[in-house]
């Protein structure tokens, strides 16, 4: 089992150079594709170069693409970002499609080293209506209360319960009964 994530650096959400406030700026600046013209582990990279690299460069005018053949070495792609970070992507035995997918991931990332995100949100203005305190929304007349106070200590007001209603009914009945008895007794 891997414990790598336990020792991984953690970070909060951030965006370089206030990206997206005015407009979006692509963070990947330059890629250097290093490959071999003969070895089979560069096959996917060679296919990519033959079929897709021109389209990729046209679709992404913000990214400079370099091709660097070197004999009998494993293929790599060097990714350089606007924040100065560089990343080496091993392209050994990758298929054309896989390579394209990894380049797509690189194109979308900001170049920050991968870290566990502690929060999925970041704000500079955590509260607009004010931070809640125990005294928020408490009726202000409690400020003027003098203690000991009968009213302040009374339990919160509620509706009459069924039991109370029954008791009241019973008491009324008893009264009525007494009254009738008295009247009959006197007469």
């Amino acid at each position: 089992m891997s414990f790598k994530h336990l020792f991984m650096k953690s970070s909060f959400v951030k965006a370089p150079i206030q990206n997206g406030i005015g407009r979006y700026v692509g963070q990947l600046q330059r890629i250097t594709v290093k490959f071999c013209k003969e070895h089979s582990d560069s096959k996917g990279v060679r296919d990519f170069i033959e079929n897709q690299v021109v389209d990729f460069a046209k679709q992404n005018p913000g990214i400079v693409v370099y091709l660097k053949p070197r004999r009998h070495r494993a293929p790599h792609v060097k990714l350089e970002y606007l924040n100065g970070e560089t990343e080496i992507l091993s392209a050994k035995c990758l298929s054309e499609r896989e390579l394209r997918q990894w380049l797509e991931v690189a194109r979308g990332s900001s170049g920050e080293p991968v870290a566990r995100l502690r929060k999925m949100q970041h704000t500079d203005r955590p509260s607009i209506q004010g931070v809640w305190t125990p005294w928020t929304n408490v009726p202000p007349q409690t400020n003027l209360e003098t203690f000991p106070s009968e009213e302040g200590y009374r339990a919160p007001q509620r509706e009459q319960t069924a039991t109370e209603k029954l008791r009241e009914l019973f008491a009324r009945q008893q009264e009525q009964k007494q009254l009738t008895e008295e009247t009959t007794g006197t007469s």
Binding site: K4, G20, R23, L117
Partner: peptide
């Protein structure tokens, strides 16, 4: 605005 599409940590 979408400013980043990447992958989380492993």
């Amino acid at each position: 605005t979408v400013i980043e599409k990447s992958l989380s940590h492993t």
